[in-house]
Nucleic acid binder design. Structure first.
Lengths: 232, 232
DNA sequence: GTCTATAGGCGGATAGAC
DNA sequence: GTCTATCCGCCTATAGAC
């Protein structure tokens, strides 16, 4: 992709306006939710007329898709850079750091979090282009656990025989070099991590959990145990 | 509360119409989501005029509140009757049965699940009347764990010192007879349970987990371990 | 690329007659 | 309790001029 300098002013303006549209749309997402995201309201806020937006996004759903991809990428980047800052650290420490980065990102971007991990937007079906960004955090966890495995540090989680074929299928799809029981446990821990974040963010911890950071820290450390990571 | 027979025809009709409004609203919830729930559309579907609905629900938000309370109660009842069917069984079996009842209810009522455990509805703030119904499932888990405790069957989960004051506060609020480390672990397991259900329901398990029932069953059994319940 | 204008809808809420 | 009528607002999307 060419830089802003080598591209013409026209292309540069287009990039800037596209960014401005997404920024304003994110603002409205926070105020009214994804279901009510409206091209007209975005246009009004930008001093444009609604029909002009169709030159940038062919439909409301395409704008929504762009926001979803940006949100997954923003979260993925937050998680990846938290991990990169701990290069060479024990896997359990990287695990915890990434979990905490996920939580921090969610607290800082609650509406974008709701967009990607909350209720599906009625009538909207995410296209395949959202899949790779959506997979970033999961793949990062697989890399961390993979590093532990290569170092011979992984203990094998329990796996009932009835679940073995499924675990083998998941491992073949996601990480053929890892033991199936590890992959299965990791997928469960991944879902449980987001359960903790969602409960905090969506208000289920109100009047129940007060010291949320410490509570979360301990819970994700126990999740790491469940996956078989050695304590850092 | 008097029965339908002792009340007048007027009151009976009112009850029936109120139920019909809520039924139709639930249908629309499934189609368009909570954010777009509209008194007008409900009225249209029922062959009423929109202003007539205001005799039953003073505002759109009151209708939404009624649906939320019904959803929590419906889930609570499903969970409680799953537990009641296992009276006298080992706590770990009751735990699993309740978790599976929660999942089954969620799969059968995905939009009502999204209403209560998904993203908050923008602009809507749940009144205090939703709190008791919302607490039913959590209280049921506390009873199951309390029974195990009284039977001397509970093992104490790990608890880092930094979390002890918070755990003691939670225990004092929720179940003073239980060890604080147990209460803290239970709250975490509770959030993680809903993480598993939400991921399945909201599509994060698509192309990842296929044998969802077995996967879930194993995961919640490990959650029971984490709380300190003896294996059933 | 942006504008005006337009088509063809939708919503919450209230007043006042019956 | 239900009706009509009304206020005042909102939306997606397109056509065609500039």
């Amino acid at each position: 992709m060419s830089s802003d300098i080598t591209r013409g002013a026209r292309a540069r303006a287009r990039t800037e306006i596209t960014a401005a549209i997404k920024d304003e749309a994110r603002r409205q997402l926070a105020a009214d939710g994804a279901a009510k995201l409206s091209l007209r309201a975005v246009a009004r806020a930008l001093g444009m007329v609604s029909s002009a937006l169709y030159r940038y996004f062919p439909s409301r759903d395409d704008l929504l898709t762009a926001l979803i991809i940006d949100a997954y990428d923003s979260l993925g980047e937050a998680a990846e850079s938290a991990d990169a800052a701990l290069a060479g650290a024990p896997p359990a420490r990287r695990w915890s750091a990434v979990c905490e980065a996920v939580r921090r990102w969610a607290l800082a971007h609650p509406h974008e979090y709701a967009l990607i991990y909350g209720s599906p937007v009625p009538g909207y079906s995410a296209p395949q282009t959202t899949v790779p960004p959506a997979a970033r955090v999961g793949l990062l966890f697989l890399r961390i656990v993979g590093d532990a495995h290569r170092a011979g540090e992984l203990s094998a989680p329990e796996l009932p025989p009835v679940l073995r074929p499924e675990a083998e299928r998941m491992a073949a799809d996601l990480a053929p070099e890892l033991p199936p029981e590890t992959v299965s446990a990791l997928v469960a821990a991944w879902a449980q991590l987001f359960g903790l974040v969602s409960f905090e963010l969506f208000g289920q911890f109100n009047r129940v959990v007060e010291e949320r950071e410490e509570f979360f820290r301990h819970a994700v450390a126990r999740l790491a145990d469940g996956v078989g990571l050695p304590r850092g």
